[in-house]
Design a protein around this nucleic acid. Structure first.
Lengths: 204, 204, 204, 204
DNA sequence: GATGAATGAGTATTCATTCAT
DNA sequence: AATGAATGAATACTCATTCAT
């Protein structure tokens, strides 16, 4: 077979094709979101025919889910690594902020896919993020229980707040990392939180 | 012709029809987002024919924009009211949190439309939110300048963080206000912030 | 009733309204043709409500037909006048060309409506034009019969040819009468025809 | 699944499908004109699904343009062939009339599409026809310059006149070629023109 | 596995026409 | 007669998905 032939049949490695589709989906979803990208776009970007897409993924959302799952488990992995279960509570925040920012540095596309609005990932990320939130909240809940943190604080609200804060900041920063040195982001993120102080009521 | 025919001609008040379309759009967009709702859905929900939609709005996005504009200006109005420019800085946070939560109580649909992911409002809300963020940030910037707040804090990051935090919390809470009494949300939101304490470096 | 009120009910003379609709139709059809103009356009241009249109005309094509009929009968009238049945044949062409050109000068809009392509008048004008063609042809037919005109000439073809020629020229000229003084158009039109000479075969 | 299902997947030759769409468009446009024919009509006539149309043409007007372009270039080709640039002027008319009539015989549908009113081709044909007109006019202009043709003749008017005449005659004839033998049409067309005679002024 | 033409349900939008007021 | 909101059929175009080759 001459190598200049149009590839037909099982030419290239299927694994490679699959990988290419994944990459293409990643790049394109990051750029425009799930709904503005067609399966044809992805196939074209991957250099394969439209039908080939369906040899590797049952449908468009399956590819999307695979991407987000991979992204989320990598993120989870890094966050886990950053706060081993045995670690002292106080040490937990900075390493996690660092993990998140490093993740953003290494995978800007994933950040866009996971966290930017209209990306299509709303449902997909919810669970993982909630889990993250809850994990964070759990630490706080204990602080609250021990009186280290004021009782006015609700752990669920706190969890949502932290997730919202972190995802927004990291998305904003990943759009253009030149905005700010990473350490400054981490430094700020680390300090925005309850420090155990019992603030006087505002009006006082 | 029997009198049971569908109404033709200018039967009902146009203002009413317009209002109905607006309401229907609000309800449906809140439920499923801009992209999953068709103009036919809206017309049907409003009890009018498909074409009637276009007697009142040039296109789907115009209706959406009208809804979001109204929502945003109401939100802006409340936030402005909550923090008169002359107010002392410290007094600013709680009233704004209260304003936001009250807004959410009164307009759960608007919250979903403005802040939930995949709503279609990404671009629309950006400006207003950023403005809000910057307003908040400005207060902090001054605190930082006066040394009241540690210099490690970056005002831009802080602004993003606060916006992310607030929008996420309010969206989460508005999904089901029974989750928690509003005061608890406000209380927590009010305390999540730097209190001027200079925390010891994490490792210390 | 104050005169500044929005006219409602039988305010203005219905005859006037009808006339205005006719004028508006004329102006708009001339500009863009039947298919690109909506009944709303016409009503708006006439300064009346959309429904009013249907108080005066059963439908859009009725208005169009009325305009074309009026235009065509005026044209017919002028052409008839220009060539009274008793006139000598030779004298017939120039007066008719003059009549046509004058008609074009007085009614540029009608020219566009009747003769320009895509105006919507295709079917409408056919008959009248054909009649015109046939009347012209008849004159020629006699010339042919008497040997004044060569037998190779077919009267039907000639009729079509003259109609095609005249309508195209007049349409072209009416687009911008400054292109040429009317006499030059008439002069040329008058001379483009068989003059009774028996041309030598082409190759000779 | 029964084998009587509609064909799915790349069953038939795409070239064939494209050709069929082209033919269908041709037939239908010739019959009713661009605006009265829908893409669904064309697809149905071609025996394919509605969406298939768009696999082959970006939109309806692209198909139309393709048809008219092909028609016009074939016509141009034939006219060019009929009057090689070196030919003596006088020899030019009959061959061109012959070319036009032959073209009409071979492509009645194209004639309708190109020249009949309301076909939708107004803009498309303009250039080519004008070019044709000007080419014809140029010959005359020279005749006028040399005094071979009377100075009262305006070359631009003449060009418009010839184009109007020819297109109308050929359209009329192509509707039903049985009306007349082609030679009679050609013969007449050939003789309708200025023969160089200086006619006495009509009134004389 | 790969191909890519074909499929057809889905959707925004237009506009001639109606008729209660 | 005049109004103008309402109607709804019509239509161009998109795109996820299928399947014969």
């Amino acid at each position: 077979m001459s190598s200049s032939e149009k590839p037909r049949g099982g030419t290239r490695s299927p694994t490679l094709t699959r990988a290419r589709l994944l990459e293409s989906g990643q790049a394109l979803f990051a750029e425009k979101g799930l709904h503005k990208i067609t399966t044809h776009d992805i196939a074209a970007h991957a250099g394969v025919a439209a039908g080939t897409f369906y040899n590797h993924f049952p449908d468009k959302s399956a590819l999307f889910r695979e991407i987000t799952n991979e992204a989320l488990s990598e993120l989870t992995r890094r966050l886990d690594e950053a706060s081993p279960s045995g670690a002292a509570r106080r040490d937990t925040v900075r390493p996690q902020a660092e993990a998140l920012i490093s993740f953003a540095e290494d995978h800007r596309e994933w950040i866009r896919i996971l966290f930017s609005r209209e990306s299509g990932a709303a449902a997909v990320e919810a669970d993982v993020l909630l889990e993250l939130a809850n994990r964070i909240a759990e630490t706080r809940r204990q602080s609250i229980a021990t009186g280290e943190m004021p009782a006015e604080i609700d752990a669920d609200v706190l969890a949502q707040a932290l997730v919202g804060m972190w995802t927004r900041v990291v998305t904003w920063w990943a759009e253009d990392p030149n905005r700010l040195p990473r350490d400054r982001v981490i430094g700020t993120l680390t300090r925005i939180q309850l420090q155990g102080s019992h603030p006087r009521p505002e009006g006082a």
